[in-house]
Design a protein around this nucleic acid. Sequence first.
DNA 1: GTCTATAAACTGATAGAC
DNA 2: GTCTATCAGTTTATAGAC
Lengths: 184, 184
Amino acid sequence: MADTLNLLLDAAEQRIRAYGYHAVSFRELADALGIKSSSVHYYFPQKEDLGVALVRRYSEQFDRGLAAIPDGSVGQKLQAFCGLYRASLMANDTLCLCGMLGVESGGLPEPVVKAVQQFLQANVDWVAEAMSAEVALAERQSQAATLVAGLQGAMMMAVCLKDLTYFDQTVKQLLKSYAVDWPQ
Amino acid sequence: MADTLNLLLDAAEQRIRAYGYHAVSFRELADALGIKSSSVHYYFPQKEDLGVALVRRYSEQFDRGLAAIPDGSVGQKLQAFCGLYRASLMANDTLCLCGMLGVESGGLPEPVVKAVQQFLQANVDWVAEAMSAEVALAERQSQAATLVAGLQGAMMMAVCLKDLTYFDQTVKQLLKSYAVDWPQ
DNA sequence: GTCTATAAACTGATAGAC
DNA sequence: GTCTATCAGTTTATAGAC
């Protein structure tokens, strides 16, 4: 029997990724689980506690995905990286949690913003690290930021225009210079 | 003396681009103008009317920017296109209105979503049109979608990470294959 | 056009019983 | 851990006076 805390995180993640942070309420999460909103406050005293827990769990899951990527060529590693984004999008037709919260960051509690920034920066760093050491560090970071930004933007386009093929088309373009095919 | 309607649109656009649709209320807009929220309802009976008016005005302003781009090489035109995004970002350190609303589209009224989709699609179409006719249409559209997605994602990264240089770095990478320099 | 006044619903949050 | 009950504040929205 799954515990309430994880069911709560699941319901919150799904809804926030679809509608945004401010469009999701404690009452609605409680209703989804058949409990009362005061019980949600038992797990997350403040809404920002829920937000931080959500980003942390999401980041840890993403980290496990990154850790599972086998060694290989630069192209193969970036291909696998994009595959993690793809799986996240296709699982429920919603954005990256941190893409949504990143966009809304101007109106979010500081602890949530900090956690989102860490996720994005860690993404850029991982990609820059995966790139060939023959390229200068600054250029690698610039290319890494472009890949992450492209993936986030592609998710937005695919979801908003309700055509998931936008995502694959964009990834194919983004990976063009790394000598790998897409779809995988 | 500027009319109330435009001051209202200005206040709403600035706040929605910074905080998101659901984080901005009629009362707060009224306060910003020193009027009452019922007066805001005089101009926009429902919130979705405000949303639609906002996206329309934003799209028209963007269209005027596109129309002002002089004829030139593919690279020069795409450079100018990216310049429009850059100007929008730098004017007040906020996202594209339609990037914000595109991300939140799952929780927005249908008429607002439709208007946002039109903006994004028009962007992709303009870029695809600006590209060399020597490239096949499908490939041009794919490259155009990648440029728009990259710009939108770059704005998110720049705003969330509070480092606007992310934007210029990404644009530089995106324009690399079009034989133009960035910054302009 | 802007106001006062108000409605009904919803928000995040708390106190305290079981 | 979940509940009932409640709070104060907010939301979108309307009716009607000026």
